[in-house]
Nucleic acid binder design. Structure first.
Lengths: 246, 246
DNA sequence: CGTCTAATTGAAGCATCTCAACATGCGTGG
DNA sequence: CCACGCATGTTGAGATGCTTCAATTAGACG
């Protein structure tokens, strides 16, 4: 089921009935976006916030010579442009990697909800802070780890994040992303990503075919990437009931 | 003059008299910290927020093999551990690079101020969002730029940030940081940092001696790093009057 | 089936790293 | 005020992880 703002926020905070109602009754536009198109361009000043409710997207910047750096992968439940709500202009672009569904909430509406329900403001602020934690991990990855370690870490991170929104099936998940995308995210060339993935496969850590990742050896994959999920601030474990959307 | 919380927030938002008063009358502890010591360790759950009012610090993580990644440089006016205010446990450490002075505000106090003055909450949230913008730039640096470009970009960024808090003297500023620190921040070895700095000097872009950076050729330095200060969200220009602290 | 994108492979080059000295500067105790 | 000692900066040389270029193969889709 697509992800709502209520569900998004309840990942981190429990909401009261009035809070939940305020979010549910808010006017909201749904938009479908084709794969490989920009959701938001660098420099945009959107007038509403978009929540990714289905699909895979990324934040990226283009460099002078045309190369690209992907700075984040966005999965269902992630907010694309909270930045513009607070700071106006977007300093980076957001692109759909697969077909996406996006929920739009006018800034004005969101602002009024936060004014009336400050805990929702805190929950969103917390979410911004969590993004920071992910950026720091990525910096560590790109700055100090080998290609092998980086990709291992990335594959772990994505599993955990998808797991929190019910988008995994056991040890496997769909990753609708090209090797070029992985390279642009981890600061590597496609060629090297390709060879590194082959290594990960040869070592029996993962399988990856037609955009489906299967983790075959959790222990080794986590160790390789020095991955510790603590920074993702996930609940100890969501029960199936909590996972049911509102 | 050391930087207060009022001054910090007024970089981005103008405050009303009651808001300013609430911040000024808040109980606050001042602490002096020697260079090269940890302000906050990874895993800490501090009970108050620390604002760096004097000195230079950094956020960092240690890797399994002992290598270090610095994820941010903190300058006067930066908040060290807002993360713990929202998410509890620190996912990284903060170390003083020079001698530092830190202002401590109990979480409880800050929380009450925000409850009473929601705009202060927004201002702090905005600050968190701005940190995100800096992380994204660093990711782009480390992921896709050469050593020469990275360091050029870094030296520009620091000048602009210091300038906003009145810590520059014309085109020069003090950077109490070793070449090892720069390497750990930009994902480079000390040796290569050293050679790259020599190149920047040889090309006449900068001078750097005993921790003093002088930008000799702005145009070339900015071009080299593809630096555009827009992401730092600085006021068009602070007048000397606005710069006067409260 | 042809077309287009993504994945794969080989080979050569280079930016950056590692190791290992050596130089310099600065704070401190004598 | 000098001399020692340690942190920091500098240099040389060899090694390598990753890149680039240039094909080739495999899949997906109308």
């Amino acid at each position: 089921m697509p992800i709502s703002l209520v569900r998004k926020l309840e990942q981190f905070t429990s909401l009261s009935d009035p809070e939940r109602r305020a979010l549910q009754t808010a006017p909201m536009r749904v938009r479908d976006v084709p794969a490989r198109s920009d959701l938001i361009a660098e420099g945009d000043c959107p007038g509403d916030v978009s929540l990714l409710s289905e699909g895979f997207a990324c934040r990226y910047k283009l460099l002078g010579d045309g190369r690209r750096q992907i700075m984040a992968f966005l999965i269902p439940g992630d907010i694309c442009d909270l930045r513009a709500f607070l700071l106006g202009r977007m300093d980076h672009a957001v692109a759909a990697l697969s077909r996406c569904q996006v929920l739009h909430i006018p800034h004005q509406t969101l602002f009024e909800i936060i004014e009336k329900h400050p805990r929702i403001g805190f929950a969103l602020w917390r979410d911004t802070m969590l993004d920071g934690a992910i950026y720091r991990q990525w910096l560590t990855n790109v700055g100090r780890r080998s290609a092998y370690q980086r990709i291992a870490h990335l594959l772990c991170e994505i599993w955990w994040r998808l797991q929190a929104v019910g988008r995994t099936r056991g040890d496997s998940y769909e990753l609708p992303v090209t090797q070029t995308d992985i390279g642009d995210a981890m600061g590597l060339s496609v060629v090297h990503v390709n060879r590194t993935l082959q290594q990960l496969r040869a070592d029996g850590l993962i399988s990856l075919r037609s955009n489906v990742v299967v983790v075959l050896n959790w222990r080794q994959l986590q160790d390789a990437g020095e991955f510790d999920p603590a920074y993702l601030q996930l609940q100890p474990q969501l029960t199936p009931v909590q996972r049911t959307d509102v």
